[in-house]
Simulated assay, not measured.
Amino acid sequence: MPSTALRVYVRNAALERIGQIDDYTSLTVIPRYNAIGSFVLEISADSGKANLLAEGNGLIIRTPGGDLVDSGPIRTVDWSRSKEDAGAGKLTVGGVSDTEVLARYTCWPAPGSVIGSQADAVYKISGVVAETAMRTLVNVNAGPGALAARKNTLLTLAANGGHGPTITRQLNQFDSLLTVLTDIANAAQLGFRVVQVGANLQFQVYEPVDRSGTARFAFDLGNLTDANYTTTPPTCTRALVVAGGQSTPRACKAVDRADPLFPGLVIEQFVDLTSVDTASVDLVAQMDQAAEEALTSGAGQGSLSISPIDIPLLQYGRDYSVGDTVSAKVRESWMTDVVREVTLTCTAVDGTTVKAAVGSDSGDGAVARIYKYIAQVKKDIGRLKTRRSA
């Protein structure tokens, strides 16, 4: 394998390393920020290591320098052979990152009670720091503090760093744990992941690192092969929040947020808080947060995809990673934003290539600045056209 090839190790169901795959023909791994990553590996079925690649085992993928790229369980093992093949064919192995474990669980309204005693309709988070709330949700629904029947014995929690703002919100009964964590983390500008630490899978919450001053990509710096920027129009510019109406009077509120590219566009979206008692002392905070989340998730978005080139002074896995903030030159302006996902492709012939997707799904931060930059360009063009016609 080339010196730039990714290192691949196989683990068993107990997370014990049982071998290394150093003769694969191709590997694509996509680590993602606040989402489930994936990998696909191809290997000759004649390989002496092929028997290690079985459902129930998993892969640990590292950079040539030893830094963790991603790890997770093998989900599919497909065999194929054509009449032109001289050997036994090939195996194509697919899997997901360890963060996937969070997608297996829901948020119970009363996580300390058995399923027959779920009398509450909601689970409430009130005045708690975002990281503490996220750790608690994982702990009581899947981690060490969960009911014995629900507890994942491999799952542990990293120490609480107290990251993020104070939040107040209600969760509907049996909401997806992964979806809830993603919503909280994105709103709080935090990252989370599950990674293998020793013989356990550890849930971690962290503040993304700002490397925009050192991780800079541009064609004139010689570390880009291509770049593409796209915009997506908004799906919500007016949040109609409705609370109560069941055992208490209804409370309604409209919150507007103009879109920079479509300033006159109004798109209403109903935000259902009818399960919230309008007599709650934190009703205003809950309605405001629900409106903010709806407007944020429905905001117009910008997405920047770049293909960086590893150079001695700037390499993926060493100088920047998924979740970090980097800089990229869009037309004539420098934009900074979070690396949402990276696609690493490695072959026995070409070594490893990297393609990064930079941009937020939140509509906030630098992605909004890129979006506003395009809006400003269109405004300037409109002014020029008006002057010419005059």
Results as ranks from 00 to 15, higher is better:
254 A>N: 11
270 F>C: 01
264 G>K: 06
260 P>R: 03
277 D>H: 12
271 V>I: 14
262 F>H: 13
272 D>G: 07
257 R>V: 09
280 S>I: 00
263 P>K: 07
279 A>M: 04
265 L>W: 06
256 D>P: 03
248 T>R: 08
245 G>P: 07
263 P>T: 08
279 A>E: 09
247 S>M: 03
254 A>K: 13
247 S>D: 14
275 S>I: 07
258 A>V: 03
261 L>V: 05
255 V>P: 11
268 E>D: 15
277 D>A: 15
262 F>D: 02
274 T>C: 04
281 V>I: 10
250 R>A: 09
247 S>Q: 12
270 F>Y: 14
278 T>M: 07
261 L>Q: 09
244 G>N: 09
256 D>S: 11
260 P>V: 06
271 V>C: 03
261 L>R: 14
259 D>K: 00
276 V>G: 02
256 D>F: 12
254 A>I: 07
245 G>N: 14
261 L>E: 07
249 P>M: 05
251 A>S: 12
251 A>R: 14
246 Q>K: 13
248 T>G: 08
251 A>D: 08
272 D>T: 09
252 C>W: 07
249 P>V: 03
280 S>W: 03
271 V>K: 05
278 T>F: 07
250 R>C: 00
260 P>T: 04
261 L>G: 02
258 A>P: 02
262 F>M: 04
248 T>M: 11
265 L>N: 01
243 A>Q: 08
253 K>E: 15
279 A>G: 13
263 P>V: 06
281 V>D: 14
268 E>K: 14
248 T>L: 13
270 F>W: 09
258 A>H: 08
270 F>H: 11
269 Q>V: 12
280 S>P: 00
247 S>Y: 05
254 A>S: 15
275 S>E: 15
252 C>I: 15
246 Q>I: 09
281 V>F: 05
251 A>G: 00
277 D>M: 10
243 A>I: 10
253 K>R: 15
260 P>Q: 01
257 R>A: 15
260 P>G: 01
258 A>N: 10
243 A>R: 04
280 S>M: 12
259 D>I: 03
264 G>F: 05
265 L>C: 01
273 L>W: 08
266 V>A: 11
270 F>K: 05
255 V>T: 15
271 V>E: 03
274 T>F: 08
263 P>G: 00
263 P>D: 01
271 V>T: 04
259 D>N: 03
269 Q>F: 02
270 F>I: 04
264 G>S: 11
274 T>E: 08
280 S>V: 02
267 I>G: 01
280 S>N: 14
274 T>R: 15
248 T>A: 14
246 Q>N: 10
264 G>I: 02
248 T>C: 07
261 L>T: 01
260 P>Y: 00
252 C>K: 15
269 Q>C: 10
248 T>N: 09
263 P>L: 07
257 R>L: 04
246 Q>P: 00
264 G>N: 10
267 I>V: 02
250 R>L: 06
245 G>F: 10
267 I>P: 00
279 A>I: 01
268 E>F: 10
275 S>P: 01
250 R>V: 09
249 P>N: 09
277 D>R: 12
268 E>Y: 13
259 D>R: 01
273 L>Q: 14
274 T>S: 14
279 A>W: 03
259 D>L: 04
273 L>E: 13
